[in-house]
Simulated assay, not measured.
Amino acid sequence: MKLQVFQDSKGNPTGGYIPIKEWEELKKQFNDLEALEYKEPSKEQILLEIKEAVIEQGKLKARAAKELLDEL
C-alpha cells in the first residue's frame, strides 16, 4: 500500500492519503468503509438545513432560504 501520512509543523501525524485504486480495493474487502466516504450535499439539502437552523433558533421568522442567502 502506498499510504502517505501528513504531518503538522511539529511532526505529528494529522492525516493520510490512500491512492483511489487501493481505496476501491479496500472497500471491496471491508464493506463498512463505504460509510466513511464524504458525500457532497446537494444545493437543496444545504438550503433545507439552513432553513431548519434559522427556524430552530427562533431569532428570525421563517422565510425562504433563498431569500436568506441572497442577503448574504
Rank of each mutant, 00 (worst) to 15 (best):
E24M: 03
D8L: 01
Q4S: 13
A53N: 07
I20N: 07
T14L: 12
A65Y: 00
K39Y: 09
G58V: 05
A53L: 14
G11W: 04
Q7C: 12
A65K: 00
L26I: 09
E37C: 04
L26R: 11
N12C: 03
K66F: 10
K66W: 12
K43Q: 14
A62V: 03
K27H: 01
I46R: 14
Q45P: 00
K51Q: 13
N12I: 00
L69M: 14
G11A: 05
K61R: 12
I18Y: 00
A64E: 15
E24Y: 00
G11K: 03
N12L: 06
L69A: 10
L47I: 04
P19Q: 06
E22I: 11
Y38R: 11
G16P: 01
K21W: 02
E67S: 13
L60H: 12
L3K: 14
A64R: 14
L69K: 04
I46H: 09
K2H: 07
K51H: 14
A62I: 01
T14K: 12
K43A: 10
Q29T: 04
Q57P: 00
L72E: 13
E22Y: 09
T14R: 12
V54F: 09
P19M: 01
E24N: 11
A53C: 03
E56K: 14
T14G: 02
E34M: 00
M1I: 06
K21A: 14
L3Y: 08
A35E: 14
D70W: 07
A35H: 04
L69P: 02
I50A: 10
K61N: 11
D8G: 02
I18T: 02
K28V: 11
K43C: 01
Y38G: 01
K43E: 15
K61Q: 13
E40F: 06
E67A: 12
K2G: 09
G58Y: 06
E24K: 11
L26P: 00
S9I: 00
V54N: 05
W23E: 03
N12M: 06
L60K: 13
Q29W: 02
E71F: 05
E44Q: 13
P13C: 09
Q29S: 07
G15R: 05
G11V: 03
L47A: 04
R63C: 11
K27L: 06
N31V: 00
I18P: 00
E25S: 12
K10D: 15
L3G: 04
L69R: 02
L60W: 14
E40P: 03
M1L: 09
L47N: 01
P41A: 08
E52I: 00
Q29M: 06
Y38I: 10
L68F: 03
G16W: 12
P41Y: 05
E24I: 02
I50R: 12
K10A: 15
P13S: 14
Y17K: 15
K39A: 03
L33W: 08
K28M: 07
L36N: 08
E22S: 08
K21I: 00
E34G: 11
L33N: 06
L36F: 11
D32K: 08
K21T: 06
E56Q: 15
L60C: 04
I20M: 07
G58E: 11
G15V: 04
Q4G: 08
Y17P: 02
N12F: 02
K39V: 10
V54E: 08
W23R: 06
K28I: 09
K43F: 12
K21F: 04
A35K: 08
G11T: 05
S42E: 09
K66T: 15
